[in-house]
Structures are given as structure tokens and as C-alpha cells.
Amino acid sequence: MKKLLGLLVLGCAAWFMTELVPPEPNATPTTPVKWTSSQQCKECHQEVFAEWEDSWHAKSWIDEDVIAQSDNFSNKVCIDCHAPRGVFETGVGNRVLPRSSRRAEGVDCLACHLLPNGGVAGTISMPSAPCKPEAILDLSRVAFCAGCHDQHKTVTQWRETPMADTGPDCLDCHMPFRNGDPNRGRHHGMAGGHDLNLVQSAVTLEAEREGDQILVTVENVMGAHSFPTDERSRAADIFWRPVTADPDARGGWTHLHRIRDPYRTEVDIPSTLLHALASQDKTGDSPRRTIGFAPPQGAIEVALFYKLAPYYRDPSDGRVWKTEEVTDPLMDSSLVHRVVVP
């Protein structure tokens, strides 16, 4: 036992000497590491790096949908947020500036963690670590995400809800603690619209018969921002079809309603976003919408499909379908909910 205690004391003393005692003034200073690429973070932060590498932040430059919608970034307004310089360079809550290099790394480690002085922002200060992170509370603020994510008004939508006062905020839903344990740090996968479970939890779909009509009700129940949030890219569509013997059969669908905020040049298209549940108190916008239609006799099924791009493409040749002509939405979307009306 004494030996163990002795080892512990020695260990603490060694740690004290190396970590807490300042270096001799005439000690040879080590050259500070210059952080130029996220690849430099990989060696020490393997778990975080793997999460990020698998995230859509990491693919913000190389994702084919982004390439298509930005015309391979000839629409240069997209570059600012899809390959940003550091958030701290222009200040939290401000716009980011575009990078000229390492664009394929997308929204990388440096975009969030690099400080203007060349240091690294983290959630705890650790001078002994190679990157010497400095605890910066701003990393967890909603304003930190706003520089990019409010370009499509997501943060503004959240601010209009009472959640701005009570929470949850961006990190609670999109960067939760690993396994719910604060000691394990936050997950850097940044789940969002690509996560079908998250999308399914955000919205409900109901349908009932009333006389000759079927009333379909779709509701944004997640309440933190509009469904879908984002301008232009994201969309959700409601389709219906007569009940088929095989519920997994493709095709036979008829388009009923689209939920989407149009791009700025789509001047003739109205915004049909489902506003946040809790925003009723502040904005009066309803998160619930009912659409009626009169189908032919017999049981029907109604389904909500979620889209990462506003158009429907034929997977074989990329041909674009008019939404109202689509009969197989699954060719370019994900099924969120389906209900059967007898």
C-alpha cells in the first residue's frame, strides 16, 4: 500500500513539475506548431476525427449534390460556408470568409477550432497537449454556428421560438454528448437532415377520411426550427396512392403537397415551410398543416418523403422529373412516414 502511495506521490510530483511549473526563462522554446490542415489533428484525436470524417461537414465540398447545385462551385457564394476560413478569424456570429486552399476538407477542424493567434480553441485548457487547447466558451454558443447556418435562416428560426430562452440549442440535438455522457465529450458527426431517424422524430403525418375527402395533416413537432430548415436544397413531399398488395412496391404515387423554401431566384414559388412548433407564441406561424383531397374509392396510403435536393432525378441518367409527374419518389428521396387510410 505504501509503495502504491509512494508511486502516486511521485507521479503527482512529476505531473506538477511538467505541467504546472513554468519553464525556465532561458529554456529553449519549442517552435509552435503551425496548424494548416485537419490531417494534423488525426493522430491525437482519432475518435473525433473519425466522426468528423464521416460527417457531412467533411463532405461539404465533395458531396455530389453540393457540386451539382453549386454548378461545381461556379456559384461562388457557396464557397464561403462550404470551405470556410476559421470562424474565429472574423469573430463568432459574423460571416465566415472563403478559403482558397484545402477546399476538399470542407468544414474542417480548423474552421471551428483555429484561433486567429494560431492557437487552438477547445472545451478545456490543456497546455501539456501538443495543440495546447484553450477553453473557449464561444464554441458552444448558438452564434458560433450562425455564421454559416443562419445564411439559410435556421438560427433565426430557432431564435423565434421559446427554445431560445429555455433550450435545447444547436449542440443539444446536433452534437450531443457521446452516449449521453458529458465526460465523453460531444459527437462530431453533427447529425442533421441526412439522419433519417432525426428527420422522422421532427415531423408527424396523419390522414383521415372525412366524407369524400381525405385530410392529411403534417406537423413539425421538433419545434426548434422550421421543417425542413434550409433554403432551396431541402424539401419534403407528400404523395398518395391506392393501397397495393405489396406495401414496398415502388411507383404508383401521386404528388399532393410540397414543403420547401424556394431559392432566391425562384421568385414565382411560395415558401411552404412548416414553422417551428414553439414559434406560435412568437410569430403566430402554425407548425401544423392540413391538406384535403378527394381520391378515388378504396383504401389509400399517404406518405411523406424527405429530400436533400429539391428535384427528382432519374438515378440512371440524372434526368430531372417535374415533381407533379413523379410516380416513384423513392428514386430520389427517403421515406419518412407512411399512413394507410382504410
Binding site: 449534390d65 432519374d314 434526368r319 430531372v320
Partner: peptide
Amino acid sequence: SDPPGSIPSAERAR
């Protein structure tokens, strides 16, 4: 090349 007016999916681009 992708047909005129088409938008390639990730799969198609690959």
C-alpha cells in the same frame, strides 16, 4: 457526359 438539363446523382457522377 450527362444529358443536357440533367443533374447527376452521386451514384451517376461516380
